[in-house]
């Protein structure tokens, strides 16, 4: 049997607790702990911390299991209906009775409630993004478009009081008159 120094044993303690060492080394450390009170105290302290940790860990896992069981209760037919119609619900596109069913689910069922909240938050974010995109347009095209269609319209006397369509009709009838197709009743 090899004699280990206290420093070596303390360095290997956490591996010893996890039983990650070969059997020979495990035996050597055990022997040392039986003979050295200093190292035994260190070992007891560390052991306690590990045990507490393991205890807390198992309790959290238990809680999670319970949570999953609770979760399953809410994933019922009502929830399925809610899920199917949530999108149309926020668009106000459901019939009155379906609207009420979705609203009821959102009140009773905590999972449904969270999903409704998330959906509304998502919608709000979309709308903010849309607003931002709209303001990305820094140019004004409207004047240019008007110029384009004005060019395609016949030219008129600007000072005249007649509206554009009246002018167009006048021009047309003048044109027809000049060709003798349309006479003004004379």
């Amino acid at each position: 049997m090899e004699n280990l120094s206290c420093g070596q044993v303390i360095a290997l303690l956490s591996f010893y607790i996890d039983e990650k060492l070969n059997s020979n080394l495990m035996k050597n450390i055990e022997y040392h702990l039986n003979t050295c009170s200093f190292c035994r105290n260190k070992y007891m302290q560390l052991r306690k911390i590990y045990d507490n940790y393991a205890d807390i860990k198992s309790r959290i896992e238990e809680d999670n299991d319970e949570y999953i069981v609770d979760d399953a209760i809410y994933r019922n037919q009502q929830y399925e209906f809610f899920k199917e119609n949530l999108s149309a619900y926020i668009d106000n596109e459901l019939k009155t009775e379906d609207n009420l069913r979705v609203k009821k689910a959102a009140i009773i069922n905590p999972i449904a409630r969270t999903e409704l909240k998330n959906m509304l938050l998502f919608q709000q974010t979309l709308h903010m993004a849309f607003q931002k995109t709209k303001n990305n347009l820094k140019k004004d095209f409207s004047g240019g478009i008007i110029c384009k269609i004005r060019d395609s319209l016949p030219k008129f006397n600007v000072n005249s009081d007649l509206s554009a369509w009246d002018k167009l009709i006048n021009m047309l009838s003048n044109f027809l008159k000049s060709r003798g197709i349309f006479s003004n009743g004379k």
């Binding site: 849309f130 709209k134 347009l137 004004d140 409207s142 008007i146 004005r150």
Partner: peptide, 18 residues
């Protein structure tokens, strides 16, 4: 009324762009 048309287009262009 071309002025009205221009104003209408000005109001809508950001929307169309988005």
């Amino acid at each position: 009324d071309l002025k009205a048309l221009e104003e209408l287009l000005r109001n809508e262009q950001k929307n169309i762009f988005a």
